[in-house]
Simulated scan of single mutants.
Amino acid sequence: MGGALGKDDSPKCCTPETKLEAKMVEAMQRRESEGSTMKSFNSIILKFPKIDESLRKCKAIFEQFDEDANNAIDPEELKRCFRKLEINFSEEEVKDLFEACDINDDMGMNFNEFIVLLCLVYLLKEDPVAVHAKSRMGMPDLEATFETLVDAFVFLDKNKDGYVSKSEMVQAINETDTGERSSRQIAMKRFEEMDWDKNGMVNFKEFLFAFTRWVGIDDCEDEEGEENV
């Protein structure tokens, strides 16, 4: 078991800032009880190209719902998108998700923000009461990719509290490396890239935003897609 690992880290992990974050953490903890299939941080890195390719295919979905073709999905377009994909969230949940993923606060969701939102929907819809809606998004390939991302987070979160701490990141990367001195620096750099609010803990949303940058989807116009790993 993960034991006491991470206990030296910020106690903020126990106080989610929003109702949505609390739901996210709860859903992740449920998923973490099943364990992870990932064996090392390298196994996550090796999946980058496949994840990248799968997420880029999302562009067609994004364009379909960006009705005014302004490269952003606004709250009304998102509501119609949810109806079309048969995602049954309450109006308040849709609003919370939009606000959580619209990180520029410009009332328009760009491509990588939209990907993060869909992945959060995937995690939240793993709720036991929604089991009957297993393929609810009707996008099996995309769901397999989202599952890989959830699985990667579960691998990193050693104490299964729904957050990744700095010490957990160091441990995950040390498990991979054969004692190279650089592994700790790599872990710290990766962790800093994820910990946007600098509170010492990374939730699933922060992890996803970092991930879209690592695989080169941070800017959908930027087609370089290299992962300087």
Rank of each mutant, 00 (worst) to 15 (best):
residue 176 T to A: 11
residue 131 V to Q: 14
residue 202 V to P: 08
residue 97 L to Y: 04
residue 76 E to L: 05
residue 199 N to L: 03
residue 123 L to M: 05
residue 180 E to Y: 11
residue 210 A to T: 11
residue 110 N to Q: 00
residue 38 M to T: 09
residue 4 A to D: 12
residue 209 F to E: 05
residue 52 D to P: 01
residue 108 G to K: 10
residue 210 A to Q: 14
residue 221 E to R: 14
residue 17 E to L: 07
residue 165 S to L: 01
residue 85 L to E: 12
residue 2 G to Y: 11
residue 49 P to R: 10
residue 42 N to C: 06
residue 216 G to P: 13
residue 206 E to I: 05
residue 192 E to H: 13
residue 154 V to R: 13
residue 5 L to E: 13
residue 211 F to V: 02
residue 220 C to S: 10
residue 112 N to D: 04
residue 205 K to T: 10
residue 163 Y to R: 15
residue 70 N to S: 06
residue 65 F to K: 00
residue 207 F to D: 11
residue 210 A to R: 12
residue 154 V to S: 00
residue 122 Y to K: 09
residue 157 D to C: 06
residue 175 E to A: 11
residue 23 K to D: 14
residue 182 S to T: 13
residue 121 V to L: 02
residue 218 D to F: 10
residue 48 F to A: 03
residue 167 S to C: 05
residue 156 L to N: 03
residue 185 Q to S: 09
residue 21 E to S: 01
residue 18 T to D: 07
residue 7 K to S: 10
residue 160 K to S: 02
residue 61 I to P: 00
residue 55 L to N: 09
residue 129 V to K: 15
residue 207 F to S: 06
residue 174 N to D: 11
residue 225 G to S: 10
residue 184 R to W: 03
residue 115 I to L: 15
residue 224 E to V: 09
residue 218 D to G: 15
residue 163 Y to H: 14
residue 31 R to N: 01
residue 223 E to A: 03
residue 88 N to L: 08
residue 133 A to W: 11
residue 150 V to F: 01
residue 179 G to R: 14
residue 40 S to I: 01
residue 166 K to M: 14
residue 51 I to G: 03
residue 57 K to T: 06
residue 87 I to W: 11
residue 120 L to R: 05
residue 203 N to L: 08
residue 158 K to G: 07
residue 138 G to S: 11
residue 191 F to C: 05
residue 84 K to I: 07
residue 63 E to Y: 00
residue 204 F to P: 04
residue 76 E to D: 10
residue 103 I to G: 03
residue 91 E to W: 00
residue 65 F to N: 01
residue 207 F to W: 15
residue 31 R to T: 07
residue 22 A to Q: 14
residue 54 S to V: 12
residue 116 V to Y: 01
residue 12 K to L: 15
residue 90 S to T: 15
residue 212 T to P: 06
residue 227 E to N: 09
residue 134 K to A: 06
residue 15 T to S: 12
residue 140 P to C: 05
residue 8 D to A: 14
residue 70 N to R: 12
residue 220 C to P: 08
residue 197 D to E: 13
residue 122 Y to Q: 05
residue 63 E to H: 07
residue 186 I to H: 08
residue 223 E to Q: 06
residue 58 C to Y: 13
residue 149 L to Q: 14
residue 85 L to Y: 10
residue 132 H to E: 11
residue 229 V to Y: 06
residue 93 E to L: 04
residue 89 F to N: 03
residue 205 K to D: 02
residue 34 E to M: 08
residue 132 H to V: 05
residue 27 A to I: 07
residue 95 K to R: 15
residue 229 V to Q: 06
residue 14 C to N: 12
residue 177 D to T: 15
residue 9 D to T: 12
residue 210 A to F: 14
residue 221 E to F: 12
residue 226 E to H: 05
residue 64 Q to R: 08
residue 84 K to N: 07
residue 93 E to M: 12
residue 189 K to Q: 10
residue 224 E to S: 10
residue 41 F to G: 00
residue 142 L to G: 04
residue 199 N to C: 03
residue 82 F to I: 02
residue 126 E to V: 02
residue 173 I to S: 03
residue 171 Q to G: 06
residue 194 M to V: 04
residue 44 I to Y: 04
residue 187 A to T: 12
residue 139 M to V: 03
residue 69 A to C: 09
residue 128 P to C: 02
residue 190 R to M: 14
residue 165 S to F: 07
residue 158 K to H: 12
residue 87 I to G: 04
